[in-house]
């Protein structure tokens, strides 16, 4: 069976570090990083890439459209 391809695009420049995505990620794959973005916020990072199932919940919940999620299901 071919492995499912998945990809998270994180537009870190617009992340405000609110943690809503971190709270609702069912796999606890996201966390707030140490570095600041240009807005001055500590932005979100995909800290456990393997755990992510590309379910899209983080992207749905993010108020600032920071995350986009892609998946290939062949």
């Amino acid at each position: 069976m071919k492995k499912t391809e998945k990809k998270l695009t994180i537009h870190k420049e617009r992340c405000k570090g609110c943690q809503i995505c971190v709270l609702y990620c069912p796999k606890k794959a996201l966390s707030i990083g140490e570095k600041l973005n240009k807005l001055g916020y500590r932005y979100v990072v995909l800290s456990k890439e393997d755990a992510c199932t590309a379910c899209g919940i983080c992207a749905e919940m993010c108020p600032d459209v920071v995350i986009e999620v892609w998946r290939d299901n062949e």
């Binding site: 391809e5 998945k6 990809k7 590309a54 379910c55 899209g56 992207a59 749905e60 459209v65 995350i67 986009e68 999620v69 892609w70 998946r71 290939d72 299901n73």
Partner: peptide, 8 residues
Amino acid sequence: MKAVYKKP
């Protein structure tokens, strides 16, 4: 790849 969620 197909979008699960993308910017409207």
